[in-house]
């Protein structure tokens, strides 16, 4: 009669709860540090953080970032420094979302949002320009482009990121504020470093 046990196994499944999420209509909550589409941040006064140093471009293993810096105009500076990112382009057909550009950036200008649901119908559309990557100059939130699928909460605090070692890249600075001010969000509290005793949430 053990032969009939198999039938019970399949029959019992009918009454079990489903684990399926009906994806396009409902998204599961994303992990806190998911690597999605990049954004270029602004300071609280609306100035761009990018200084056109091309470090991100240099570190990029997929060669997908193209940056050209230019001198800031004296009467109307774009960034609080000598130079600013004149051209900033990311090719999303090449990008592997490794976040090395984010770690390389000396001003924390480039970060990644949690949104990865976007698509294109030709190769040129896959190249995001500086206009598309920059956060909105009023609210400081990422621009929600028509071909992207943003959901509630996915555009919040997109400038959050963490270095592999500590919030500052140096263990002795652990727990100290490492963020420059963000347009729309201001200066945020220091994040917990990896050596912190507080356990990370499981089941990411």
């Amino acid at each position: 009669m053990s032969y009939l046990k198999g039938f019970l196994v399949t029959f019992r499944q009918i009454f079990q709860t489903r684990v399926t999420t009906p994806y396009p209509s409902k998204k599961r909550e994303k992990p806190e540090r998911l690597h999605g589409r990049h954004v270029l941040g602004r300071y609280e006064d609306g100035m761009e953080k990018c200084i056109g140093c091309e470090l991100c471009s240099g570190v990029c293993p997929a060669n997908c970032i193209y940056v050209r810096g230019a001198d800031n105009p004296r009467d109307n500076p774009v960034s609080p420094g000598e130079r600013y990112g004149f051209v900033y382009e990311i090719n999303y057909l090449r990008c592997i979302h490794c976040d090395l550009c984010v770690e390389a950036c000396p001003t924390g200008a480039i970060t990644e949002s949690k949104m990865f649901e976007f698509s294109f119908t030709n190769r040129n559309d896959a190249i995001y320009t500086k206009d598309e990557l920059l956060v909105d100059s009023e609210s400081g939130k990422p621009k929600q482009l028509p071909w992207e699928d943003w959901r509630e909460g996915e555009d919040l605090l997109t400038s959050g990121w963490l270095r592999a070692t500590s919030p500052n890249g140096d263990a002795s600075y652990e727990g100290q504020i490492a963020w420059s001010g963000d347009l729309g969000y201001g200066i945020r509290k220091a994040e917990i470093g990896q050596s912190d005793s507080e356990p990370q949430e499981e089941g990411m």
């Binding site: 029959f11 499944q13 009918i14 489903r18 684990v19 399926t20 009906p22």
Partner: peptide
């Protein structure tokens, strides 16, 4: 639908 139920799936919906 039934075979999906027995596989713990949702099936056509």
């Amino acid at each position: 639908k039934v075979v999906a139920d027995m596989h713990n799936r949702v099936g056509p919906s």
